[in-house]
Design a binder for these strands. Structure first.
Lengths: 223, 223, 223, 223
DNA sequence: AATGAATGAGGGTTCATTCAT
DNA sequence: CATGAATGAACCCTCATTCAT
């Protein structure tokens, strides 16, 4: 009677604490430069004890990335739910991304910086989630353009990557505690991007030597 | 005067070939995931032989980054030499950066991705060169703003990082051979940035919780 | 009187199932290459649960060997009970050994292949049972010889080991389902051995450098 | 001028010393129960230093087995070279096998006992060599039978395995220093086998329930 | 009677680096 | 200049085993 399955909950909680902690260490020293022993030491769990929670170091990395991506995607979907104005949707996208970045900095750095450290199925799995996120972004941009001008696929793709670049690069310099607030950062990046995006048109088209259309990139951010 | 130290030249050439090759491998597998043996194997030089050219693995990483940064800075200075129009200077900055990125992709990825892998003096040295580069960028942005509007330091800083983010992030997705040409990419990013930069003003200022004054605001974006 | 401890019976049954299963796995992968976890997985019992049935991995190995040896010895004694013809006794010995081999292949392989994996008292205990079995065999051979010729102890010993070699080696090649029937295999080995045994005499005696007397020689084989 | 490549020779010598030593330890403690550290300790070479000579523990096991098998096969071929009498050829086979067994006991035990510890290509390679050896044996037995009686394939196969069993099993009990001389052991086993082989005919044929002929087994001793 | 959680010890292997030649 | 040979330290991971429940 009363609460059910407290054991499982306990396990889940401890696991999440370990994910959080590991993300911090990976973010700090880099995945390959972090030893499982480092994590054992920091967590107070024995070396072997960790393997009760993850099958391998790479699975640990994978779980960190997957958990964050799911959070990001869920959060975004919820926020976009009943918003229809294209620019407002873009604004929400930028703000949501950066807010999560600020709140979960270590995991975000790991997600952005250590994608290449994954291999095999782990990588494939994360690639798929990143792809989904990228598609969401491209959809929004398409709507903005349809509303305000032409929607060249190549231009859209470059713009999307530019936007991700602006946002993701923050992990190299932005510290929420020392810099401007996330809200203001997000707003500035949003306006910076939107301002240029709306007027960029098919910039430099005439310069391009490759004629063929590129089609939708298979790379999410980059596979 | 006699022969000008042909041995030395030979040495220099071989060293540069090794730097290039190592950059490729580091870019491909990551610095920490690459072993000196990998480099020995790929170069045909014996394991011990490599240590004639570098004192340590980290020095190898350092040389790759330093060499590229010097190239970038020199190239940029030369191109900016007698150009005075602020926007044209910004345009040159963007194009120069991306052209080098495209021409020396492996080294660029290493420069961008493996900065944290440096320690001690090596890191400090590279930090200084990066700082110099950043200052050049900020100087250009300041000029653009002075020409066209207010030049809030915080806004400038965020804009500069946004620009770097857009450009540096390309290492994760842009392939010169498969994507749009570098020229077009550069032009689009330049316009995207400039368009937003010129109209972004002190976006979101009222949202900010930080107290410090930011200079006279201009018209809100939405008006 | 009442019920005869049904719990205990349950326990005994489960234990025997575990012995059987473990024998299979040990036979397949080798004792040292098998982990307790493998056994837990295969049996569906939890890792810790297994330790209710055995005190240690080695005790598990010991029980497998001991159980089989007792079976073999009991079976043999029963079959030899009222048989007095020496050759018939030998025949029974061979058939019995090989029949058990065929019926309990995994355990037999473990018994033959993993004797060295035992240590201390476990090893000593099994050694004693094996010795008993060997003595039974030697006794039979002695009778055969006494019946048909001289009974040199050395010759007997070598012959006994030869017989065991022929029989035990079957674990490396004989598969009851694919090869000749056990009956035929047993009969052929029996005749092969008996044929040679009866005529081998003190073969090669003159070749031997050992000085110890070997008893009166009989006619050379070639005569 | 003078001797060529002394370095290579040195390397080869050291490697062979390591093979020999490792064979002893594997024979003594078993392959899976021996750690590379044990070998390092016994050889005086550092742990990492060993990996200059073998790529892996399994390759070490493989080399031990391969080296011995090549020795055995070469030796046997040389001895059989100009001998034509079938019985003499059989005699040479048995003597050769046991002499090598006695001279290289540790390696022989490893070859016989640790075949299952090999995997993948290593195993396949050894399997092929064992097969070649087995075929040589079968060829000899066929000749003996053709000379003296019928040559049933199944009987031959069983006889061959019986012979191998007699000989290989010696690793479990025979100590050249304490037992009869190798020559005498070989002679006795040879006569024991030949005596039975020549008179065994198609023993127990009528007992067999499986009718189909077995054809030449693919297993050497047992793959 | 059974298990989830945990651990110390040790496994095979790779690493950056050195040094005599 | 260049290398073959060697090493100490550290890596990730698995092991048999225990103990509170």
């Amino acid at each position: 009677m009363g609460q059910a399955a407290p054991v499982s909950t306990n396990h889940q909680e401890k696991l999440e604490r370990l994910l959080e902690l590991s993300a911090e260490i990976f973010a700090d020293k880099g995945y390959h430069n972090t030893s499982i022993r480092d994590i054992a030491r920091a967590s107070g769990v024995s070396l072997a004890g960790l393997y009760y929670y993850f099958r391998s170091k790479e699975e640990l990395l994978f779980r960190i990335q997957e958990r964050l991506l799911r959070t990001v995607l869920d959060d975004l979907r919820r926020r976009l739910d009943d918003v229809h104005d294209p620019r407002e949707r873009l604004r929400i996208f930028v703000h949501s991304h950066l807010r999560v970045f600020a709140q979960r900095r270590p995991a975000m750095k790991v997600l952005v910086h250590e994608y290449d450290s994954l291999t095999g199925e782990h990588r494939e799995h994360i690639r798929a989630l990143r792809h989904e996120y990228m598609e969401t972004c491209l959809g929004i941009l398409r709507d903005v353009r349809r509303f305000c001008g032409s929607g060249d696929a190549v231009v859209l793709r470059v713009a999307a990557f530019a936007l991700f670049g602006m946002m993701n690069w923050t992990y190299t310099w932005y510290r929420p505690e020392q810099d401007v607030s996330v809200e203001r950062l997000a707003e500035q990046l949003y306006r910076l991007f939107l301002g240029g995006f709306l007027r960029s048109g098919d910039a430099g088209r005439h310069l391009d030597r490759c004629a063929e259309p590129l089609g939708p990139g298979d790379a999410p951010w980059r596979s």
